[in-house]
Simulated scan of single mutants.
Amino acid sequence: MTPVAKAAARTSPAASPGSGEPRPRFTDLLAAEWLKFRSPRSTAWSLAGTVLAVLAFNAGTAYDTYRYWRENDAEGRARFARDGIALQEAFNGNAMLVMMLAAGAVGALAVAGEYRTGLIRTTFTAVPARRSLVTAKVLVVAAATAATGAVAAGLSFWLTQTILDGRGLGVPIGHPGAWRLVAASALLAPVSALTGMALGALLRHVGAALVAVFALLLLLPGMLGDDRHWTAVAGHATPYQAWLRLAEAGEATARYPWTAAGAWLTLALWSLAAAAVTVGTVDRRDL
């Protein structure tokens, strides 16, 4: 019997006080889902590749600044400090896109992949308590991607500012807005992964879920410009634009500005809603 099956068996209906088996425990479900999540080599490679890609994009931007700094005129150098460009280069837009797409794909595969292989049927046969099981899966994926995001954001800040320090341009972690940028960038991963899980639960097809991740997380927010009030407000309700607001140095400069507190709230509510959709959809729909 595989480790996953052993962990699942401990939560089966047969595990009753009279049968001599231990009572079902939520920690057993967490252990089983963690084993399923980390067992495929592709998962570890995907997360490691995401971190390396994020570092490459951010470090490349910082190195370009370092390399061509002497070619800037006095106005360009003054603007670099005035506009907080050092923080912008700690985690840039390209790195953000990679993080969101990769984490969203991991989340989508965690759910839709089980429907594709049929593993979901075996799992629910061993553990009929769908809601508890899917909640455990959500927590495992959220924790793993949050750790990945934290590593990517933290290393990116350290590496980019170390490179910029070669020209005396780097800023410390205590610089205004630095912690906010690192935290918001780290949270991109679990928010995107939970969104991918919700789409995987709704669509139950890997290809469709991956396309939906791209459309919902990146394509739709790009279509919601700030030229009209209603599109600006709708855009504010997306993780993409929430991160843009939190990564912004200084005060908001958009035509219809919003607060950093509103951006944090958007990330929190998006995560909770995605988790609720995942658990509710899998719990109520037939296999």
Rank of each mutant, 00 (worst) to 15 (best):
L30G: 09
E248D: 15
A150M: 08
Y115K: 04
I163R: 08
L269E: 03
V282A: 01
V98E: 02
L199A: 09
R116E: 15
T135S: 05
R121P: 04
F26M: 03
G250Q: 14
V127L: 05
S39M: 11
A8H: 10
T266K: 08
A110R: 01
M96E: 15
L29D: 12
A254Q: 15
S39I: 12
S132N: 11
A234R: 06
R38I: 14
P172Q: 02
S19T: 15
T278A: 03
W45E: 14
T43A: 08
L35S: 14
A62R: 02
K6L: 15
L159R: 02
A102W: 04
L203M: 00
P128S: 07
N72C: 10
V151H: 15
Y68A: 13
G93T: 13
P221W: 02
G76E: 15
S132Y: 08
R70P: 08
F124P: 03
A201E: 03
P190M: 06
W270T: 00
A215S: 01
V4F: 12
W69R: 07
A183C: 08
I120C: 00
Y256I: 14
V138T: 08
A261S: 11
F80I: 03
A59S: 04
N58W: 05
A184R: 06
W230Y: 09
G76Y: 07
D165S: 09
R228M: 06
A31P: 13
A53F: 15
Y66T: 04
G280N: 07
W34Y: 11
D283Q: 07
M100P: 06
A74Q: 12
V141K: 00
G113Q: 06
V277E: 02
A247R: 15
A153S: 06
R180L: 13
P17D: 01
G113L: 06
P176D: 00
G49D: 07
L267S: 00
T195H: 12
L217W: 01
A232L: 05
T266E: 05
V206N: 01
A136G: 02
T61N: 10
F37S: 03
D286Y: 13
G149W: 07
A7E: 09
A14N: 00
G222V: 09
L35P: 12
A90S: 08
F57N: 00
F26A: 03
W264A: 06
G104K: 03
T65R: 14
K137N: 00
R204V: 01
P22D: 00
L287S: 14
A14Q: 02
V171A: 02
A110G: 12
N94F: 15
A48T: 06
G196K: 01
Y66S: 08
A7Q: 12
A274Y: 05
L164C: 14
H229N: 09
P172G: 04
A247G: 15
L35N: 12
T148L: 15
V282G: 00
G113A: 07
I163F: 04
T43N: 07
P17G: 01
A143G: 10
L220D: 01
G235F: 03
T65Q: 11
Q88F: 13
G225I: 07
G168L: 12
L272Q: 01
L272A: 05
W179L: 06
T11A: 04
A142H: 05
G166E: 01
L287D: 15
